[in-house]
Design a protein around this nucleic acid. Structure first.
Length: 871
RNA sequence: GGGCGUUUAGCUCAGCUGGUAGAGCGCUACCCUUACAAGGUAGAUGUCGGCGGUUCGAUCCCGUCAACGCCCACCA
C-alpha cells in the first residue's frame, strides 16, 4: 500500500492476461448453471469454427462481438449459456488425415478396436493403408483434437467468456448420436426419403453436393456447331433435313435424349413431333418444344443430355417418358456403353459401337476431343470452333465443375414448406434487419430438396440398412432404421434387429448404407447438441429456443437456414429469437481476405503486440453486419485507451491514498455541485450504454462509455484533483467519494470490453482501497444502474468550461488572473439568476477557484461567468 | 436480369424521429507542465457520390444515375 508500489506500475497486458486467465479458470467465473430457469438464462448458439487451417482475423473479430454481449448479459445477472463447438466433421479433415497418417478408408474392412494410427512423418510414397470407417473416424478425432487445442488457446487469450465445460465437436459421440436421432425423427415424420435422382456431383471428391454448397465460377470453353438431321428412320439419307446445334459439351452427345426448341420458333416449328438423329451414334431422339430454349441463343435449338446442366435436369423431370442415359461414371470416365440395346438404341449400332470402343474409359475432356475429331472426319462439324467463357457450378472446395449424376441419395423435404420457412424468417429478429432479405431470397429460390448424403467417410453415418431379397437384389425402398437406444452407431459394424452378422451382404440378408451425412446435417443441430437434446440430464428446456445466434452472412443460406428448418421440423419452433450477422474483415483495398489472394492477415501477432483488450477494442468499435477494412491503427487506438485507463486509475488511487474513508463509497456524501453534475453525467452514460446494449449495439455503448471516460480524465479529474487531497473536509470527502464511485462505475462499464484490464483494476481496488466484494471477479459484478434522482438543470459543459479555463490559466502561469468562461449555450442562461447562484456556489467549492462573477453585457447571450482562480 | 448493402475530412468510421456536419488517427504550432510523451494544449481540413423532386429548410425522405461489394437467377 505504499505509494511507490502504485507509482511503479506500468501497463503490461500479457502479465495481467495470464493472471486473469488463471483466476477465471480457478473460480469458474463463466460457468453455466443448468439448474437455473429459462427466464434467468441467456443462451448463445455459438458458431463452431471449422477446425482446419487456422483461425483468422475475421473469427477473432466476430467472436469478440459475441463475447461482449455474453459479458453484458452475465453482469445483468443472467445465467449465460455460452458453449464452444468445433466443426471437425467433413472433407477438409478427411483429406488431412489421409495425408498425415497415410491411411484411407475402406468400407469393406471391419472395425479393429486395437488399431493405432501413426503419423508417417516425412515418409513419402507409402501405399495408403486401408482401415475401417469407424477406425478412420477415430483417427480424425485424434488429429482434430490437436487443432482444437490451438484454437481453444487462441480464443482463451482473446478473453472469450465461454464455459469450456460446454465444449463439443461435431463428430464426437454426442453429436453423432444427436445427428442420427435427428435423422430418425425426420424419417419417422416422412421428411427424409431416399431416391435415385440426378444430383450435383463432384468428380474429384466423388461425392454428392447440396444446392447450397455450389458456387458459380467462370471457365473457358468452346462452342462446337454440330449438325443433326431430322430422322427418316434410316441411318444414311441424303434427303434428311439438317439443322445445327451449338454446344459446349460434345462429350455428352451419347447421352442425348431429346432435342428442343422454343415453341414459337418458326425455324423449327415444323420439326416438332418428328425425331432427330444424333450424329455419329445415330440415336433417334424426339424433337420437342421447350420454353427454356431461347431463340436468340446459339442456333435456337439444343440437345438435352442426361445431364449437362440444371436446365436439362429440370426439363427432363417434367417429361415423364424420357430415358436416362448416364454416359460417365462417378470419377468422370466415359462409361462403356453398348449401342443397339434397349437403353441405347441406334440406327447403326455397329458404327456407334466402333466409336464407343475408342471413347470408353476416357476422361470427359479427352472424350470431347475425340468426338470432335470424329465429327470433323464425318464433316458434321460446321463453322469455326469458337472460344467462349461460361459460368459453371462448382463445389465450394472443388477443382472441376460439378456434373449431374444420377444416384441414390437421402433427401430432406424442403420444397413443400417454403411458406412456413418464410414465416419463420419473419419471426426472427435480424441484426441488422436487412440480412433477412438473404434468407428470404434463398428460400424463395430453393429448387431442390436437401440432399444430405455424402459419399465420404469422415462424417455421421446413416443409421440405416437395406434388406436383400432372395435374388440378391437390395431393397432400397424398404430401409431398416436403427432404434434410438443403439445410437450412435455405424451400420457397417452393427446389425439390424432380427439379423445376424453372417447375413451381411448375403441373399435374404441385409446391406448397410455406406454414406455419411452432409456436415450441415450436423451443424444445423448446434442448439440441440448444446442442450443435449433427448439425452439423459438434458437441459434443452432451459436454453431453447436460444436467445442469440451470431454468424456471418455467407452462411445464411446454409447454417442459418438449415438450423431454422431442423428446429421447425423437430420442435415446430424457432431455434433462436435473435440472429446477429457480423461483417467481414476486408483488406485495406476493401477486398475480401482469402487464402487464394494471399492477403490474409493472421491474428496472433496483433494479439501479442497490442494485448487482448486493445485487440478487442478494434473488433468492438465495429457495428454488427458492417464490413470493416483492416486498419492496424485501430489497435493503436485501443492500446492508447487501455493505457489511459490504466494511468488514470492509478492516479485516482494515488489521490485516494490518504482518503478519509477507503471502504466503498457513499453517494450521500457527494454534496458539492460540480461533483453532483459529474454524477449526472455518469448516470446519463450508464443509461445510454444500457439502452444500446439492450439492442445488442455494443459499439454505440463503447463509444458512449469511452467518451465519458475521456471527459472524466480531461475535465473532471482536473477539476477535483486539488480538492480531493487538500480541500475543506466536507468538500474533500465529496470529491473522494465521487472519485471512488466513478472508479467503480468505469470498472464495471468497461468490463465487457476490456476484461483483462478491468480484472486487474478490480484487484487494485481491493488492494489499495481495501474494498471488499463478495465475488471473486469483476465479471461477476452487476452492471451499474443509473441513479434515480433529479438531474441538475445545467449541463456537464460547465465542468468542461471551468476545467479548460483553469488549465489555460495554469499553462500561462498567470495565476490569480481573471478568466472568462463562455456560457453561450449553457442551460444556465435559460434560467438565469437562481441557477447562476447555484453554479457559483458549486464552483466556489470545487477547488482552485477564488471568485465567480457574472459579467455585465447588453444581451443575455453575451454574458459570461468570470472565474478568478486562487493564486 | 432480380435483390440487398455501401458511398460523409488524407485514412478508419459515428451521425437517433429532416434544422446548413462529428470522433479518433494523420497533419500544423506550442509544451518534459500537471497521473499519463503509449502524454497535454491550441488549430486547419468537407459542393455529406452525381442529378432531379418533396419541404421554409435535405447528409437524413422520394425518384434517378454511377462506382464498389455481396446474394440469387440465366449461361445450349
Amino acid at each position: 500500500m505504499e505509494q511507490s508500489s502504485l507509482q511503479k506500475l506500468t501497463y503490461n497486458p500479457s502479465e495481467m492476461e495470464k493472471k486473469a486467465l488463471s483466476l477465471w479458470q480457478k473460480e469458474g467465473v463463466y460457468k453455466y448453471d443448468k439448474n437455473r430457469s429459462r427466464q434467468e438464462t441467456f443462451s448463445i448458439d455459438t458458431p463452431p469454427p471449422t477446425v482446419s487451417g487456422s483461425l483468422h482475423l475475421g473469427h477473432m473479430f466476430s467472436y469478440s462481438q459475441t463475447d461482449v454481449i455474453a459479458r453484458y448479459q452475465r453482469m445483468k445477472g443472467m445465467n449465460v449459456f455460452y458453449p464452444m463447438g468445433w466443426d471437425d466433421n467433413g472433407l477438409p479433415t478427411e483429406r488431412r488425415v489421409q495425408n498425415v497418417y497415410g491411411i484411407q478408408c475402406s468400407l469393406e474392412i471391419p472395425y479393429d478396436p486395437a488399431y493405432q494410427a501413426t503419423k508417417k512423418e516425412g515418409k513419402k510414397n507409402l501405399k495408403a493403408e486401408d482401415i475401417s470407417r469407424e477406425n478412420f473416424i477415430e483417427v480424425c478425432n485424434e488429429l482434430t483434437l490437436e487443432d482444437e487445442k490451438v484454437f481453444k488457446n487462441l480464443f482463451m487469450n482473446l478473453g472469450l467468456s465461454v464455459d469450456w465445460n460446454l465444449e463439443y465437436s461435431t463428430i464426437n459421440d454426442l453429436s453423432r448420436k444427436i445427428a442420427q436421432r435427428s435423422f430418425l425423427d425426420l424419417f419417422e415424420k416422412k421428411l427424409a426419403y431416399t431416391q435415385e435422382a440426378p444430383i450435383m456431383w463432384d468428380l474429384d471428391f466423388k461425392t454428392a453436393v447440396a444446392q447450397a454448397e455450389g458456387e458459380d465460377r467462370e471457365i473457358a470453353g468452346h462452342y462446337y456447331d454440330i449438325e443433326f438431321a431430322v430422322s427418316s428412320g434410316k441411318s444414311e439419307n441424303e434427303n434428311d433435313a439438317k439443322f445445327t446445334i451449338s454446344t459446349t459439351r460434345p462429350e455428352l452427345l451419347m447421352g442425348c435424349v431429346a432435342v428442343v426448341a422454343h415453341p414459337d420458333d418458326e425455324r423449327y416449328k415444323s420439326f416438332f413431333g418428328k425425331k432427330a438423329k444424333t450424329p455419329l451414334f445415330n440415336v433417334e431422339v424426339p424433337i420437342l418444344p421447350a420454353l427454356h430454349a431461347d431463340p436468340e441463343k446459339g442456333t435456337g435449338i439444343l440437345m438435352v443430355c442426361t445431364f449437362g446442366d440444371a436446365n436439362d435436369v429440370d426439363w427432363w423431370k417434367q417429361q415423364k417418358n424420357l430415358p436416362l442415359r448416364q454416359v460417365f461414371d462417378a470419377a468422370g470416365h466415359i462409361e462403356s456403353i453398348e449401342f443397339g440395346t434397349e437403353k441405347f438404341p441406334s440406327l447403326d449400332a455397329v458404327k456407334a459401337n466402333k466409336y464407343m470402343e475408342e471413347l470408353k474409359g476416357l476422361y470427359m475432356k479427352a472424350a470431347a476431343k475425340k468426338i470432335v475429331e470424329f465429327l470433323q472426319a464425318e464433316n458434321l462439324l460446321k463453322g469455326e470452333i469458337r472460344p467462349t467463357k461460361r459460368f459453371a457450378k462448382f463445389y465450394e472446395k472443388g477443382q472441376r465443375p460439378l456434373e449431374y449424376l444420377s444416384s441414390r441419395q437421402w433427401f430432406v423435404r424442403l420444397l413443400h414448406q417454403k411458406e412456413e420457412f418464410l414465416n419463420r424468417g419473419k419471426e426472427i429478429s435480424w441484426l441488422p434487419e436487412h440480412m433477412k432479405n438473404r434468407f428470404d431470397n434463398w428460400v424463395k429460390g430453393l429448387s431442390a430438396d436437401w440432399c444430405i448424403g455424402r459419399q465420404r467417410f469422415f462424417g455421421v453415418p446413416f443409421p440405416v440398412w437395406y434388406p436383400i431379397d432372395g435374388e440378391g437384389k437390395v431393397q432400397y425402398h424398404k430401409p431398416i432404421v436403427a432404434s434410438q437406444e443403439d445410437l450412435p452407431l455405424d451400420p457397417l459394424n452393427s446389425v439390424p434387429v432380427g439379423y445376424t452378422e453372417s447375413q451381411r451382404n448375403e441373399k435374404n440378408g441385409f446391406k448397410a448404407d455406406t454414406d455419411v451425412m452432409d456436415t450441415w446435417a450436423t451443424s444445423s443441430l448446434t442448439p440441440q447438441i448444446g442442450g443435449r437434446w433427448g439425452e439423459e440430464g438434458s437441459y434443452f428446456e432451459n436454453i431453447y429456443p436460444f436467445d442469440f445466434r451470431p454468424q456471418s452472412h455467407e452462411i445464411i443460406r446454409t447454417w442459418a437456414f438449415y438450423t431454422v428448418a431442423k428446429s421447425h421440423f423437430h420442435e415446430d419452433k424457432l431455434p433462436w429469437r435473435n440472429i446477429a450477422i457480423s461483417g467481414w474483415i476486408l483488406d485495406p483495398d476493401r477486398k475480401k481476405m482469402s487464402k487464394s489472394k494471399g492477403n490474409v492477415v493472421t491474428p496472433e501477432k496483433y494479439l501479442e503486440d497490442y494485448g487482448a483488450d486493445a485487440f478487442r477494442y478494434w473488433a468492438l468499435r465495429a457495428k454488427l453486419g458492417v464490413d470493416t477494412a483492416f486498419d492496424e491503427n485501430q489497435f493503436k487506438i485501443g492500446r492508447k485507451l487501455c493505457n489511459k485507463i490504466f494511468n488514470a486509475t492509478k492516479f485516482v488511487l494515488m489521490q485516494l491514498e490518504n482518503a478519509t474513508s477507503k471502504v466503498g463509497y457513499d453517494v450521500e456524501k457527494i454534496v458539492v455541485g460540480t461533483d453532483r453534475l459529474w454524477l449526472d453525467e455518469l448516470s446519463f452514460c450508464i443509461e445510454d450504454a444500457t439502452k444500446a446494449f439492450e439492442k445488442f449495439d455494443y459499439s454505440s455503448a463503447l463509444m458512449r462509455i469511452e467518451s465519458t471516460f475521456w471527459n472524466f480524465c480531461d475535465y473532471y479529474i482536473e477539476l477535483v484533483k486539488v480538492r480531493s487531497y487538500q480541500g475543506q473536509q466536507e468538500e474533500k470527502v465529496s470529491a473522494e467519494e465521487s472519485l471512488k464511485y466513478s472508479l467503480d462505475v468505469f470498472n464495471r462499464l468497461f468490463a465487457p470490453f476490456m476484461p483483462f484490464l478491468m480484472e486487474e483494476i478490480f484487484h487494485w481496488r481491493q488492494e489499495f482501497l481495501s474494498e471488499t466484494f463478495d465475488v471473486p471477479s469483476i465479471h461477476l459484478m452487476k452492471w451499474p444502474l443509473s441513479e434515480e434522482r433529479e438531474m441538475q438543470d445545467y449541463s456537464f459543459d460547465l465542468i468542461k468550461e471551468i476545467s479548460s479555463a483553469i488549465r489555460a490559466q495554469k499553462t500561462k502561469e498567470q495565476k490569480g488572473m481573471k478568466t472568462e468562461v463562455s456560457l453561450l449555450k449553457l442551460a444556465l442562461l435559460k434560467n438565469e439568476i437562481p441557477s447562476f447562484e447555484l453554479a457559483r456556489e458549486d464552483l466556489m467549492s470545487s477547488g482552485g477557484v477564488k471568485k465567480v462573477e457574472l459579467s455585465e453585457a447588453k444581451s443575455l447571450e453575451e454574458r459570461k461567468i468570470e472565474v478568478t482562480l486562487l493564486g
